[in-house]
């Protein structure tokens, strides 16, 4: 675990850059993490996915993986991969300030 300063705020992240404490997150931080991951600009569709991920995690305690994301986020799987080419669920979780989804499907 390391402390990283993102958008002027100190946050705790793990080796892969996922947040240890989701409550340290703000939208400005999310935008900064996205930029660092090569996603710029963050469109409304990107935010829709990121906010859905975050909401699901805070509600249920686990982040949805790709199949659930494609079914429930309102963004189909094809578009998810266009928005986040390096892994939609993984990247959206990172930007959303929540742990990496651990589902295998």
């Amino acid at each position: 675990m390391t402390t990283k300063t993102i958008a002027g705020i100190d946050v705790e992240v793990n080796d892969e850059g996922f947040f240890e404490q989701p409550d340290q997150w703000t939208e400005a931080i999310g935008a900064e993490v996205a930029k660092e991951a090569g996603i710029e600009p963050m469109t409304d569709r990107h935010w829709q996915v990121v906010k859905f991920m975050r909401h699901q995690y805070l509600e249920t305690g686990s982040a949805p993986s790709i199949r659930a994301l494609g079914k429930a986020s309102g963004v189909p799987v094809k578009e998810l991969y266009q928005l986040f080419p390096k892994g939609p669920a993984k990247l959206a979780a990172k930007i959303a300030g929540i742990p990496k989804p651990r589902g295998c499907i």
């Binding site: 993986s65 790709i66 991969y81 080419p85 390096k86 892994g87 939609p88 669920a89 993984k90 990247l91 295998c104 499907i105």
Partner: peptide
């Protein structure tokens, strides 16, 4: 199938 999908999930 799981391995192929898992690969794509990791980019």
């Amino acid at each position: 199938l799981i391995m192929a999908n898992g690969a794509r999930m990791e980019g």
